Structures are given as C-alpha cells and as structure tokens.
Amino acid sequence: MSIEKIVEQALQDGYLTPAMEAEVGRICDTASELSIEEYMALDRLMGALLTGEVVAVPRKQFINVMEELVLTEAISRVAAFESTSNRTLDLGDIAAYALNRLPPLYATTEEGANYQRSRAKEELQSLISQQVNEAIARNLDRPDFFPERQVISKTASEGDVLSQVSSLLQTYAPRFEAEGSR
C-alpha cells in the first residue's frame, strides 16, 4: 500500500493503526527518495494527527494481533456504515464486543505477529467478520442513554465511587431505600 493510500485511509477513518504506521515507516526506510506527493501526504497526516482529526492507536511492547485485525475490520465497517447513514457508532464498544468473543493472538516479535496475522486471516477471518457484524447490530439496537450519564471515575477514591453509585441509585430508583427500610 502506498503512503498516499494509507494517509487517505487514516483521514477517512480518523485512526492511524500500528499496522498503518509500520507500513509508512517501512516505505520511508526502504525508499531512496520520496516523491512530492508522498511528502505532501505525510504533511497532511502530520497536520491531522496534531489537530486530532486522526488519532494514532498506541503501540505496545507486545500485541494482541486479534485487536489489530478486529479494529481494522471494525473501522472499515463503521466507516462504510456511517458514510451511508446519519447514525454514528461507537467504535470502542464494537471492537470490545467482538474481541470478547474471539480468541486472543498475542505476539512479542514482528515474526510472531506476522505468523499470527497469517494464521488468523486463514482460519479466523470469517469469524472476525461475523463478530464485528454482530457487534454493529447490537450497537444499533442499544437504547439511547441520557446525555447527563457519567462514567464512574477510575481515579476516584472508594468514597467517591460509593457516592457516585449512591447518586445513580437515587436517580434511577428513588423509592428503593424508602420501600426497603419498611
């Protein structure tokens, strides 16, 4: 894949995956000289990364190749869906749903990752597609939540979490304590 196509895909999807980043790096390392178009594409990508239009998915010391494959599939499907619909889908929820139903494929070296990728593409691609499709269907059937909902903070102290849970219970079950104490 060319730098221009990778940048175009990243701009379209809003994400730069580790695989895309590695491919750009490989092209830059092996090319004796980049064309004007390639430099312009890299400039567009850098600008998009700086403005947040494109988000770089972080690289790890070890990778679960299944995450990469599911994320690539989910980005493709979500982008296709959102281009023909006025609804937006939660990419994180879709990827998490599918990943929870697929086997992990961890690797610590590039050779191991390549092996896991080829193995997964041969043996698991249809299952990956099926789980991403199911995740999208579930995401579409999800009820609309109240806009004032808040995630329970991970950095909150135990007392803060308890007060948040208590507040949630008071909001959604206001008569629970009154009826339970009788």
Rank of each mutant, 00 (worst) to 15 (best):
E37T: 10
A107P: 03
L69H: 00
Q61G: 15
T51E: 14
F81Q: 03
E68T: 04
L162W: 11
T72Y: 01
A96C: 07
L71Q: 02
A19S: 13
L71C: 10
Y115S: 06
A113C: 07
T88A: 11
V55Q: 14
L34E: 08
E68H: 05
E37C: 10
L127Q: 02
A178F: 06
K60I: 06
M20I: 01
R77F: 04
A22C: 05
P174N: 03
S126N: 14
L99P: 05
C28Y: 05
R101P: 00
V132I: 05
R59P: 04
I75R: 12
M40H: 12
A107Y: 08
V70F: 07
S163D: 08
D90V: 01
L102S: 00
A135K: 07
I94Y: 06
V55E: 09
V132M: 00
S83L: 00
L71N: 03
S2Q: 10
G112Y: 03
K154T: 04
V24K: 07
G180Q: 15
I6M: 12
A137T: 12
I136H: 02
E23V: 03
G14H: 05
C28I: 15
R101G: 06
V132W: 02
S167I: 00
A31M: 09
D29G: 06
Y106V: 04
A31R: 08
L16Y: 08
P174D: 11
I94P: 09
A79E: 05
R138S: 15
L140V: 09
C28H: 02
R59I: 15
V165R: 12
M1E: 09
Y15T: 09
R175Q: 11
A10Q: 10
L91I: 14
S163E: 09
I136W: 06
K154E: 11
E8F: 10
S83K: 12
S153T: 03
A96F: 08
A137D: 09
S166K: 12
N100A: 10
T171L: 11
A135Y: 06
T171Y: 12
N64G: 02
S118G: 00
E177Q: 07
S126D: 14
V151T: 14
E122G: 08
I6N: 04
E38I: 02
S181T: 14
E21N: 15
Q131G: 00
F145K: 13
L11A: 11
A107V: 04
Q170P: 03
Q150H: 11
R119V: 08
E134A: 11
F176P: 02
A95Q: 08
I128G: 01
E21Q: 15
N139D: 13
K5Y: 08
